[in-house]
């Protein structure tokens, strides 16, 4: 039986500012001008769009001001797999079933306490209902991703310094420097790293670093429809992650390995590893 206490409801939209330019009106004007036969406008038209991509803060992005982390509320995950699909699209991850920056696992614990875990295609296509429903004691989904450990074993073992923690707490791979020895993949206790089949280097979740520097949230957080993924700062109070950590008992995965993950789980079952 699953939890029958907490009905899950979508959270309030986050109050991030919208760009000041009303682009739709601009496009409409441009269209009219086009109709009047002015091809130059077409080229100019893209300018404000490009400018809008870059919020004012980007030029001044200072990694020292940030330390990123993620919260995951197991009780809110509906296993739709949109995060998995979004991650693959955003980060050009191969679309096969063997390479994932993030994936969703389903745990089904039956009345005898036996645990069955599956993750068909990483949860990319969602989950079909489990076979024997009547025997379920409890069942839930667990999104997984790189934990961006504060004490990352993958970084420790890299022989050449091709993987590293950034000042803002993200573990990245330098794909132009990685020699492809795969020691980091062996050293990761979470199975979060994979070997890129065409680039022949180690690959992993970047926490959508290219989005962070633009002031955006990672793609998986953007598309999570139930707010099960909470993104924010580990050390600053006024962020959604800080509220998440205040309101929940949080746990990390495999704490006995002292990797000190920065992905925090709320309502995590003891069977998850």
């Amino acid at each position: 039986m699953t939890r029958d206490e907490e009905p899950s409801v979508a959270p309030a939209d986050d109050p991030r500012p919208t760009p000041a330019v009303d682009r739709r009106r601009f496009v409409e004007d441009a269209l009219k001008a086009c109709a009047a036969g002015c091809p130059l406008i077409l080229a100019v038209m893209r300018l404000p769009a490009a400018a809008a991509q870059r919020p004012a803060g980007e030029a001044a992005y200072d990694p020292a001001e940030h330390l990123y982390g993620m919260g995951i509320d197991i009780q809110k995950c509906i296993g739709c797999g949109r995060c998995v699909a979004a991650c693959k699209a955003e980060n050009d991850v191969p679309l096969d079933g063997y390479h994932f920056n993030t994936w969703v696992e389903r745990y089904v614990i039956d009345e005898d306490g036996d645990v069955t875990v599956d993750s068909p295609n990483g949860g990319f296509d969602g989950f079909p209902p489990p076979a024997a429903e009547s025997e379920i004691r409890r069942t839930f989904f667990v999104p997984k991703l790189c934990n961006h450990c504060a004490n990352p074993p993958c970084v420790q073992v890299c022989p050449v310094g091709a993987t590293f923690s950034t000042p803002d707490g993200v573990v990245l791979v330098d794909e132009q420097y990685c020699i492809g020895c795969r020691y980091c993949i062996q050293a990761c206790p979470y199975g979060a790293r994979w070997f890129h089949p065409t680039k022949h280097v180690a690959a992993k979740c970047t926490l959508c670093y290219h989005r962070l520097v633009k002031g955006l949230v990672p793609a998986c957080v953007e598309v999570c429809p139930t707010g099960a993924r909470i993104f924010g700062e580990v050390e600053q109070r006024p962020t959604p992650l800080a509220r998440f950590m205040r309101m929940n008992d949080v746990q990390v995965l495999k704490p006995h390995l002292n990797t000190r993950p920065k992905v925090y789980y709320a309502n995590l079952d003891g069977e998850v590893r």
Binding site: F164, S165, L172, T206, Y209, H210, R211, L216, A219, E222
Partner: peptide
């Protein structure tokens, strides 16, 4: 740190799709 600092810039330059 013990890595190529320029790597951060090239990763940050990855185009966003969403």
């Amino acid at each position: 740190g013990h890595y190529r600092a320029a790597a951060i810039d090239s990763i940050a330059a990855h185009p966003k799709k969403y």
